[in-house]
């Protein structure tokens, strides 16, 4: 896919950091505010897809390494299952929340009822949010990237 006009490219460059930071914010605050790993990952992946549509697939493929994408996706999936298995080791069951109330990372228990939120709560939920968020960002972006690149090469073959 070729790149679009200069107006589209400039606006995409300006809007990309804001969309990316909003997606990462939704992932990081998944245990406090609405949203979570999947929703924040979808927002961040749409920011990447906007860059892809504006600049074209050839430019985007020059800027990134495919090996790194596969490493990140595998890291997300393995991290998710590893945290679940750690629940089997330290706690009682698969997907056990073993960090809650342990005074370690994310171990504080908040006061019951509505009130000011503390980010140091939630047990394993923030870690699982990070893992699933990484997996969703890379997974959805790889789908769009591969389809764009295949569309380009398919069109060149037809000519």
């Amino acid at each position: 896919m070729t790149k679009m006009s200069k107006i589209v490219r400039t606006i995409a460059s300006i809007a990309f950091p804001f969309a990316m930071i909003y997606g990462l914010y939704v992932i990081a605050h998944g245990h406090l505010t609405p949203g979570g790993g999947f929703q924040g990952g979808a927002i961040a992946a749409s920011a990447c897809a906007m860059i892809l549509v504006a600049f074209g697939s050839k430019w985007t493929l020059d800027k990134i390494k495919e090996k790194r994408l596969s490493v990140f996706e595998s890291l997300g999936g393995i991290g998710f299952i590893a945290i679940a298995l750690l629940g089997l080791v330290f706690g009682a069951a698969f997907f056990n929340n073993f960090l809650t109330g342990s005074n370690f990372l994310f171990g504080t228990i908040p006061a019951t009822g509505s009130g000011l939120a503390d980010i140091n709560t939630g047990g394993v939920l923030p870690l699982m949010n990070f893992a699933v968020g990484l997996k969703v960002i890379v997974g959805l972006f790889v789908i769009v990237l591969v389809m764009a690149y295949a569309a380009t090469s398919f069109k060149e073959d037809k000519k």
Partner: peptide, 16 residues
């Protein structure tokens, strides 16, 4: 809030 320590109930249901 007592069992998982998260304020967002939806995330607690989804991940825990």
């Amino acid at each position: 809030q007592e069992e998982t320590g998260a304020n967002n109930g939806v995330t607690a249901v989804v991940f825990d």
